[in-house]
């Protein structure tokens, strides 16, 4: 008998609107420079000029404050080719090079991009100049890309900034970050989740233990032993502890406030289980309250299958029956 494959979900890790960062003194000088169409580095303790600048010497940690304008032309000291730019990540939409470019007047190179038509136009030692974005907002892509410069050509100054920006130094940036995942539940949680779609709650226990874990994760957390034995537990249980929620709008699934979320020890299980409690005023919910699951009309292999728990009319459970779990 083969069991169905474990459940897989798509998951996006994203900070809506982007991650906001304050930039500090040195990065402010750098990004304000880019906004103004110049590249700013800093002199470090051994006399070298480093770009982008930092507030501290990378070797000694000493404070630095001698900012130096470098470039505008520069030299490629290393490169690689990106044949498939990533949408939503790379700011260039056609193939380009990542490169270490050392601006004239600087002693160390910086990571940035070079825009040429094909990889065979790239070479270590090639001379490049900045192509500035027309709208510059104080971000690393204000320097849109380095581009080849021919012998004797003079880099042109950045055009007037078309972005509406104040003359104040850049103090912060907003960085979009998005990672996409394929999360897999694993064998044990998949069995549990599928049981919810069948109007059942399936936990697991290890061979050498009588503790039943719901939801199961595949191992007995006390011993690390695999939980190979499936156990159906009741949809009736005891509230071991609870919280009255007065914050509205926490989730699209949350009921109107005030509502109660609770740890519920399902009969036959040894791990309290998270659920909502409805069917009585929030201020009447109490430890020991006996409750029963209210199942959704449409059952699915996830937590939405149980809408909430309601009192089932039994007398409250004595404290001793759940004290180990409270």
């Amino acid at each position: 008998m083969t069991s169905p494959p474990p459940l897989i979900e798509q998951h996006v890790l994203e900070y809506p609107g982007g991650y906001t960062r304050s930039v500090g003194t040195a990065v402010s000088r750098y990004l304000t420079g880019l906004r103004d169409g110049v590249i700013v580095g800093v002199r470090i303790g051994d006399g070298r000029v480093m770009v982008p600048p930092t507030e501290y010497d990378p070797e000694t940690g000493a404070a630095l404050d001698e900012y130096v304008e470098v470039g505008p032309a520069g030299t490629v000291v290393a490169w690689t080719w990106v044949s498939e730019p990533r949408s939503g990540k790379h700011h260039l939409t056609k193939p380009f090079a990542f490169a270490l470019v050392r601006p004239d007047g600087a002693d160390v190179p910086m990571v940035h991009v070079v825009d040429v038509a094909a990889a065979d136009e790239m070479a270590v030692g090639m001379r490049v100049m900045p192509r500035w974005a027309s709208e510059r907002v104080g971000y690393v892509t204000d320097l849109d890309a380095w581009v080849p410069i021919s012998d004797g050509e003079t880099p042109s100054a950045a055009a007037v900034n078309t972005a509406e920006v104040s003359g104040e130094p850049v103090t912060g940036i907003t960085v979009p970050i998005r990672l996409e995942y394929e999360i897999n539940a694993g064998r044990a949680p998949s069995k549990y989740l599928r049981s919810l779609a069948e109007h059942k709650i399936i936990g697991q226990r290890a061979v050498d233990s009588d503790k039943v874990y719901v939801p199961p994760r595949g191992s007995d957390p006390t011993t690390g032993a695999p939980t190979t034995i499936e156990v159906e537990v009741s949809d009736v249980g005891t509230v071991t502890t609870f919280c009255v929620v007065n914050l509205p709008g926490l989730s699209e699934f949350a009921p109107e406030v005030p509502f109660v979320c609770a740890q519920i020890l399902l009969d036959g299980s040894n791990t309290p289980w998270f659920g909502l409690v409805q069917g009585l005023p929030a201020d009447e919910v109490r430890m020991g309250l006996r409750v029963q699951a209210v199942w959704a009309d449409v059952l699915v292999p996830d937590a939405r299958s149980i809408k909430w728990f309601e009192p089932n009319g039994e007398p409250d459970a004595p404290y001793d029956t759940y004290r180990e779990y409270a």
Partner: peptide, 14 residues
């Protein structure tokens, strides 16, 4: 895509 992290770690720890 069969095993979650716990199910992956358990055998090597054991």
């Amino acid at each position: 895509r069969e095993r979650n992290e716990v199910e992956f770690i358990s055998p090597v720890v054991r």
